[in-house]
Structures are given as structure tokens and as C-alpha cells.
Design a protein around this nucleic acid. Structure first.
Lengths: 188, 188
DNA sequence: ACGCAATCTTATCACTGTCAAGATTGAAAA
DNA sequence: TTTTCAATCTTGACAGTGATAAGATTGCGT
């Protein structure tokens, strides 16, 4: 008879989406399960039917973000077929993703147990980088040297992403051009 | 008459040092003012005579860590006079610092208000990098290009520091050699 | 129609950061 | 020396947190 039904229906998804929005606006530190539950209009214990604990909930959000990033990179990959340019485009997209959602970066990499091996954006990155490097240096590029150069490119792009969301290092008025210039400034 | 005096004497310093140790072992997430106060043997409100709030306390620890890192870089700077090698040594020291204290990295860069402009390690880094780059490319290096290359070197070193403390990317059995190889893999 | 498993609520627990009020102290000022 | 005052610390409280147990409500398959 009352307005709300006893069962919400899509509580899990709504929790993830609202949590994502909250982090985007205020950061993780001040996010609480209770506030989130109240803002959805559900009791404070309700989320624990869907997430084992707060950490599991945050992991779900992280997965959501990582998937979004991976999707963005994949679409970039499909859009650009030029193998000499796709490297740059991927790096630029990676940096811009975190620039557009500054709080996501801190949120994603604020854990003791980060696992870069199964970090999908880099799994997408690696073959492209290797292809790119082979095209650049020919086949005399040894396995060891190839690995080092690939890692260096990862580190450069990832480090640049951190700078992009922090004031003062990059010129924000001309960000895309800036990123291009920096990524092109090194020769691997 | 009892064992402990009413006044601790050096509570502020002991709080910072114990907090540092705790973060090094368990991470920031589980650090609480109360537990820390109890482990020191002081009441839960005692720290608030020295720190405005928990955030101010954490900032003090961050400053402590950044100072330690800066000191390490400075001593590296003094030890190595060869301008062609000091670049590499600085980068290596930076990465190794965070490798030796893995939880410091997450702790330092987990804030909304990071300010890389006044981040002393990079203030030390910049002139060395510029000197290095000028020696490499001569004086035809434009101001814009110099800035981009310097930023690229920052990003590479900083990004590599993040990888170093995470399993799977770098070969930990041969870390120093690994870092050398990667830093040398790019030409700026 | 029945019953079960998923979902949600209520009540409660231990714990957290923080503050106000007051106790204790060292050191400067008289 | 005595007085006084600011710094320091304790006690006791408050609201807010994550989490759990016990029970209410519901949709769905049989």
C-alpha cells in the first residue's frame, strides 16, 4: 500500500552506481555504507546482502571503473588502425580518462594488493606496444630489451596520468597537445 | 609516585614515529588515533593537543616521509659528481626508496590535494634533469621541448616507482639492474 | 498452494574521530 | 621563593561507522 516496495529490485547495481558518483564528487574517504544506503532509501544493513563487506563493495566499484577504462581503450584501438599512431592514441586516452575523473586514479591505486599483472588496460597495452616497438627497431630487438622498453612505456604513460590530475605539472588549457608533446619527447 | 609521569615529554615526535612504523607495517587504512595512543600509553584525546585532527597528523607523517626521501636524493646527488650518471642514480634512488617502503607510496599519493609543484623530490630532480638534457642535446633544445622532456623523465621515474612496489612487473631478484635497464631503455 | 531462498529491517555491538571540562605540570614572572 | 599561566594530559561524552544476528517480507520454482 505504501510507496516503496519491500524489495528494491536492483539494489546491487544502484549501490555501485551511486557509490561511483559519490567517489567522483567527494572521494572515497568520506564514503560510508550507511549514508549511501540512506540516500537510496534503504536500511543500513541492506547492502550486506549483496556485498560481503565494505571492501568487497569498493572492489566491485574498482572493477566497474577498470572495465570502463578498458572499454575506452578498446574503442580507441578499433578507431585507429594506423600502427604508428595507435600507440600515442592509447597513451593519450589512458591519461585523459583519469584527467576527466580525477578521483578515480587515487581510488584505484589506493590498496596494498594492487595487481598490475591482471590490470586489463595494460594487458591491452602490451601487444600494441610490442608491435609498435618491433616496427620501430626491426627484429634485432632482443626479448629482454623489448620487455624493458615496453615497461618503460607503461611507466611513462601511467606516471603521466598521475601528473595530469594534479595541478601545476601539465598545461591544462592545452592538455591534449601537451600530452602528445610529452609522449613524443622520448624515443624508446 | 606512579611509574609514568603526567607529561609525556615528546609525545608529538613519538606519535609521528609510531604512526610511521604502523603505516609501514599495516598501511594507513587500519591506523587509528586511539590504538596509537593506547600503544604509547596515553589517553585517546592526548594527541589532539599536538595535532588539530587526524588529517593534520597524517600530513605531518607525510612531510616526514617526503623529507626522508629528499635527504636520500640529496646524498645521492652529493655522492655522484658525474653529470652523465647522476640522472640515472637519482631515478634509481627514487624508485628504490618506495620499493623499500612499499606502503609509503600509496600513503603519500592518496589524497585529493596532492601538490606536485612543491614536491621537493621533483624540485631536486628538475635542475639535474635539465642539465643532463642540455648536455645531451646541446643548446638547440628549445624551452618548450626541454620542459616536455623533463616532464617525461619525471613521469617515467615516478610511474616506475609505482610498478616497483607491485608484484609482477619488475624482476625483484635483480631489481637494481632491472631499473637501470628500463631507465636506459628510453632516450629523451 | 506451498515452501524455500533471497532480500530487506530492526536492534545491537565494538570501534572510531573529536570535543568540552577539568586535572596536572613545567616554566616564566613576580 | 611563590605565584601564575599556558601547555599538556585525562575523563567522559557524543555522533557516526562497519558489521552481525534475528526476524519480517517477498518472489519464484515446484
Amino acid at each position: 500500500m505504501s510507496g516503496k516496495p519491500y524489495h528494491h529490485g536492483n539494489l546491487k547495481r544502484e549501490f555501485i552506481e551511486k557509490g561511483l558518483k559519490y567517489i567522483d564528487r567527494y572521494g572515497v574517504e568520506s564514503l560510508s555504507m550507511r549514508k549511501l544506503a540512506e540516500s537510496i532509501g534503504v536500511s543500513s544493513a541492506a547492502p550486506y546482502a549483496h556485498f560481503a563487506n565494505k571492501d568487497a563493495f569498493l572492489s566491485a566499484i574498482r572493477e566497474y571503473i577498470t572495465d570502463s577504462l578498458s572499454d575506452a581503450l578498446r574503442s580507441e584501438l578499433e578507431a585507429c588502425q594506423d600502427p604508428t599512431k595507435v600507440m600515442l592514441m592509447l597513451g593519450r586516452r589512458y591519461v585523459l580518462f583519469f584527467y576527466e575523473n580525477p578521483l578515480y586514479f587515487q581510488f584505484l591505486f589506493t590498496r596494498k594488493d594492487i595487481d598490475f599483472i591482471s590490470y586489463e588496460p595494460f594487458l591491452l597495452f602490451r601487444p600494441v606496444a610490442e608491435e609498435f616497438l618491433k616496427g620501430l627497431h626491426g627484429k634485432q630487438l632482443s626479448g629482454e630489451s623489448l620487455r624493458c622498453k615496453t615497461t618503460a612505456m607503461w611507466a611513462l604513460v601511467h606516471g603521466l596520468a598521475q601528473f595530469a590530475l594534479i595541478g601545476g605539472v601539465l598545461d591544462k588549457n592545452n592538455l591534449e597537445q601537451e600530452i602528445n608533446s610529452i609522449l613524443c619527447a622520448v624515443e624508446v
